[in-house]
Write a protein that binds this DNA or RNA. Sequence first.
DNA 1: TTATATTTTCAATTTTTTCTGAATTTACAA
DNA 2: TTGTAAATTCAGAAAAAATTGAAAATATAA
Lengths: 167, 167
Amino acid sequence: MKIEEAKKELVQNWGVLGSQWGINRTMSQIHALLLVSEKPLSTEDVMNELTISRGNAHTNLKDLVEWGLLNKTIISGDRKEYFEAEKDVWKIAVTVAKERKRRELEPMLKAIQKLDDELEGKSEEALKFHKLLKDIQQIGAQADMLINFMGKVENNSFANKLLKLVK
Amino acid sequence: MKIEEAKKELVQNWGVLGSQWGINRTMSQIHALLLVSEKPLSTEDVMNELTISRGNAHTNLKDLVEWGLLNKTIISGDRKEYFEAEKDVWKIAVTVAKERKRRELEPMLKAIQKLDDELEGKSEEALKFHKLLKDIQQIGAQADMLINFMGKVENNSFANKLLKLVK
DNA sequence: TTATATTTTCAATTTTTTCTGAATTTACAA
DNA sequence: TTGTAAATTCAGAAAAAATTGAAAATATAA
């Protein structure tokens, strides 16, 4: 298989995976496209590569920058903006984990805390429900620790420690 | 806040979280409903609690059983099927992680393996792309180890080891 | 400045996903 | 068996999400 074809397939697969995990397919595809691109691409390049509209390309590029997965770059003598992706897959994983925690998990955990604070009654049912809320929070806290740890170490260091942990 | 109201809110929040992570909102809500329910519920109960149609309730209950998050139970002298949820939040987390890995991550990793196997050329570009594929696979392998480990230990044991790891 | 290239916005449209509800099938008690 | 309650299916409807494309705003080189 030619490299161009292989890259196209990766972009497709990445798009599918994203959509299964609640991330807009185009956004994942743009991310993959820039991940495999040797050089920064302009909005126009992205439009052409993925055959999508200007508005769509623009919105998703902007979102990816907000996620911290892309950077804007300037090419001197060129008026256009260019985008390039973080290429370190470990860093990408950490960034995505942190962002999803911040955007989606944390609001949920806050809501649970609020529920627990406001919960009335001392019935057995109330106690069970309280325990459920605490259990969910505990798992949230563990995920948090894990993500923080991931953010602090390099990939290989994480792999080593994980290996020891598993044994 | 009354317990019934608190439970309803949890069901709503759970639904939102699910939809953000690519899981149909109704499915998450049904799961939460059974998670906070003191007793098994029938399809009819679920329809009434969430004000959804029979078809919708049926399909999502079936899917939840396939995910391993619900069990069918029989109440003697009653012709209806009842459903009850696994209540151990740690086990739920492990089940969800395993299922998502099996259904979504593994197909992606297989596709990547295939791409790598079939990749032609020894150009610098090809080597870089090859490295990218390997890096993605490596992270997949780490996620796999982590999930397996989670499946083997209890929640508190995991928390302890994680704590040591982080230090 | 000014002309124009580029970016941004967003109402309307298209696509995808989810849901409904009635018809069909299946399972059970008598 | 037979009658009926419950489970299952699925075509069409509704809702939600994504996308388009053109108009407006902004930025830059000359």
